[in-house]
Amino acid sequence: MLVLYCILVLVMLVGIIGAVVPAIPGSSLILGAILVWGVVNGFTEIGWALGTAIAVLLLSVGVDFLSAYLGAQQAGASRWGQIGAIIGFIVGFFGLLPALPLGGPLLGIIVGPLLGAMIGEFLYRKDLEFNARIKLAFRAAIGIVVGTLVGNLIQGILALACVIVFLVTTWPF
């Protein structure tokens, strides 16, 4: 029983990392580990942990979308910039950027949205001269990326809180 508990706590630690680092499961991994512990123990003493994990999972989804949106809005990004960032994320993670010798998908999910947002904004701002388009595109791209990074940090804090609630409510089982 102790071995399983330790393994599940390690899985939850990976979930905390995943809440901060995109492309690694985060809150859902933590929720899954809590559910496994609940199944093994007949769902006794995990009420708070399970409720917290479900709330954190729902909040994480909201934080993810809201942080990128607010970052884009603060920087003055258009829908084109936001769509470009999404496409850049997908291309960065699954496309050519993972083939880079250093960084792989992690570098791709940072550089991809930045380049995607810049390209989207650059294409949208056709009414401005070239230098002004570049400045606006760069500012919008930075806003989207910073918003996303702040959102990931908030998700990491939420995931850490969820694991702490699990440990406090189940230790010593």
Rank of each mutant, 00 (worst) to 15 (best):
E45K: 13
Y124Q: 08
G108W: 02
P172R: 07
P98G: 12
Y5V: 00
I83C: 04
L153Y: 07
F89Y: 12
T52V: 14
V61K: 13
A141T: 02
G116Q: 04
L97H: 08
V14T: 04
R133V: 04
V11E: 03
L35R: 06
Y69C: 04
I54R: 12
G38L: 00
I119L: 13
L97T: 06
L2R: 12
L115E: 09
V11I: 13
V3I: 12
F94N: 08
F166R: 01
W37V: 03
P113W: 02
A55H: 12
I87P: 09
C162Q: 04
L2F: 07
I16W: 06
F65M: 13
I157D: 01
I16Q: 03
N152D: 12
G47K: 13
S28I: 09
I109W: 07
L160S: 09
T170P: 02
V20F: 04
L10V: 14
S78L: 09
S27V: 08
I34A: 01
G116N: 10
N41W: 07
V20S: 07
I86K: 06
G71P: 01
P25I: 01
L102W: 15
S67F: 00
S28D: 05
S67V: 03
L4A: 08
C6V: 09
L123A: 06
V39P: 11
L158Y: 03
N131P: 15
E45T: 00
G151P: 01
L158A: 08
Q82R: 11
E129L: 15
G81T: 11
L128K: 12
V145H: 10
W171R: 08
A77D: 11
F122S: 02
I17C: 13
Q74S: 13
I157C: 11
I30A: 03
V39W: 05
G108K: 03
A117D: 05
G71S: 05
G71A: 09
A141E: 04
G112V: 05
V168P: 07
I87K: 11
